[in-house]
Nucleic acid binder design. Structure first.
Lengths: 148, 148
DNA sequence: CAATTTTATATCGTTCACGATGCAAAATTA
DNA sequence: TAATTTTGCATCGTGAACGATATAAAATTG
């Protein structure tokens, strides 16, 4: 009845989409107590690496557009994790900086990557093989990302 | 400043999340003319493979919960792709079936997987390596999916 | 310098994802 | 059979994604 190529089980994208959703789910027990979501955690990773960045830099690193990042940052400002001030040289820019609360959260979060790695290893039985996908995923992402 | 493990570039999940988003983006030029979204396309894949399924079966195949699938199906019913009738044996169930429009769309969609594959190969230069991730993604998904 | 284009950000509307909760029908248990 | 539990689906609220559009500031061009 169905064309072979139209079977769900033959879709790469469906797997990426599902794997991403399920992997984000593994973060829940660690992020919920901190009161943040996975995308918010990504913003914090970016800011912990370098504080005080304009929205466009954060968006570029997360490979999202500002129409996704702006509301995300607005929510984070409301929950007291960041501040958004006008740029001094370029007044179009909004410089995003960590509050004390945002900075302090780094200490609570520093074990998350290790916990995740352990959880995934435990659940899948073999994290080695999974981590080996990283270069290929990078190649895929690099090929598909918009040229600027 | 930042803990090494807290750098964005060391995150597997971020790559899955980004790869999934970008890959879904490649579907846009093919799905937009059909007036459907990627999750709606997945529902159609499921129904083309086997028509007349209860919501729970569709949800299980898509690895989503009914609170995501129900509104999705409601939108698809509104746009005339499917019908949702009460189950005869089990009246709790909603049996989802393709309309003529939903069935006819299969013909228009049958080249999409091939187009996608070509597009990805063209953009990344090497689709071989990417397709090789499938068994590993399946292992990851299988390990992370909820036990029922 | 004036006009035009680009850039940085924001807003709006629609569709998902998903936790929490509700409800009625079916299945199970006492 | 009556009481309880489970199952199938739906609703609600929140937070993303993202296309389309808007706006003001900067950069570029004429």
């Amino acid at each position: 009845m169905a064309y072979e190529q139209l079977k769900l089980e033959n879709q790469l994208c469906f797997r990426l989409y599902t794997a991403a959703r399920l992997t984000m789910g593994v973060y829940h027990p660690y992020l919920d107590p901190l009161g943040i979501t996975y995308p918010q955690y990504l913003v914090l990773l970016v800011l912990w690496e370098q504080d005080k960045q304009p929205v466009c830099d954060i968006a570029k690193k997360m490979m999202l557009d500002t129409n996704t990042v702006t509301p995300l940052l607005q929510r984070m400002e409301k929950s007291g994790l960041i501040n958004r001030t006008r740029g001094k040289e370029d007044s179009r820019q909004r410089i995003v900086s960590l509050t004390e609360k945002g900075k302090a959260m780094q200490e609570q979060a520093k074990h998350i990557p290790e916990c995740l790695s352990n959880d995934v290893a435990l659940k899948t039985g073999d994290a080695e093989e999974i981590v080996k996908m990283i270069p290929t995923l990078d190649k895929l992402i690099d090929g598909l990302k918009k040229v600027e």
